[in-house]
């Protein structure tokens, strides 16, 4: 069956495309071939939006699986989730480096003083344990139930990401509100569309690890 590996290549390519485009634009800018008004804002906005969209994709895998009944979709959830973490990390580090030159006291002062910063910072911190425990080994070690419980954090992280976006804009909240509406729709789908079969509730990235048992 060649379909899944093929789709994996497509998924990796799609997930890396925003980064590739961004790197290309920055490279052009450094050569003087492309005028960017604010390269740092571009980096921060693009990585932030990419993280948010990938979080949304992670959250919509289960509802989509229930709607379509196509269970192999679950094989893409970890990939989406880890890429969301990847972009969130780039986003956070672009803030640490460009806005604060890695000065931790200045980062801390900014985080505690400003709600939109701490909500984003906290969302990033919450993503870390999820990324670390995303391996099949950790799922086995923690046990499905505990693992599922921990990974419910994503229901907190995604709204925090949207809130971070809403709180940072000055007056026109149209764009972040669109993201809020999409997230609400995904979460509603998650609640309203009930699983059809028992197996569809399985939390595990690879339901049957390739062990010989």
């Amino acid at each position: 069956m060649r379909l899944i590996p093929g789709l994996k290549i497509v998924a990796w390519t799609a997930a890396l495309a925003p980064l590739a485009l961004l790197l290309y634009q920055i490279y052009q800018f450094t050569l003087g071939l492309l005028i960017l008004n604010d390269p740092v804002e571009l980096i921060q906005h693009r990585t932030g939006i990419s993280a948010l969209i990938l979080l949304f994709i992670t959250l919509s895998i289960t509802p989509l699986r229930r709607i379509t009944g196509w269970n192999p979709l679950i094989k893409f959830r970890r990939l989406a989730g880890l890429f969301a973490f990847f972009y969130a990390t780039l986003h956070a580090f672009s803030y640490f480096v460009f806005d604060h030159s890695m000065d931790f006291s200045s980062i801390w002062a900014d985080v505690i003083e400003h709600p939109w910063v701490w909500v984003g910072f906290l969302a990033f911190l919450f993503l870390i344990p999820l990324a670390l425990t995303s391996t099949t080994g950790w799922i086995r070690r923690m046990g499905g139930k505990n693992w599922t419980r921990l990974h419910k954090l994503i229901y907190l992280i995604a709204p925090m990401g949207v809130l971070h976006f809403i709180w940072l804009v000055k007056a026109d909240v149209t764009e972040p509100v669109i993201y809020a509406v999409i997230l609400a729709a995904i979460l509603a789908a998650r609640i309203l569309i009930k699983p059809k079969t028992k197996s569809a509730t399985a939390p595990i990235g690879r339901p049957t690890p390739r062990s010989t048992s």
Partner: peptide, 13 residues
């Protein structure tokens, strides 16, 4: 909502 101690000159990192 944000500090005014620093600024980014457009084009600088």
């Amino acid at each position: 909502r944000w500090t005014q101690a620093k600024e980014r000159r457009l084009g600088e990192f």
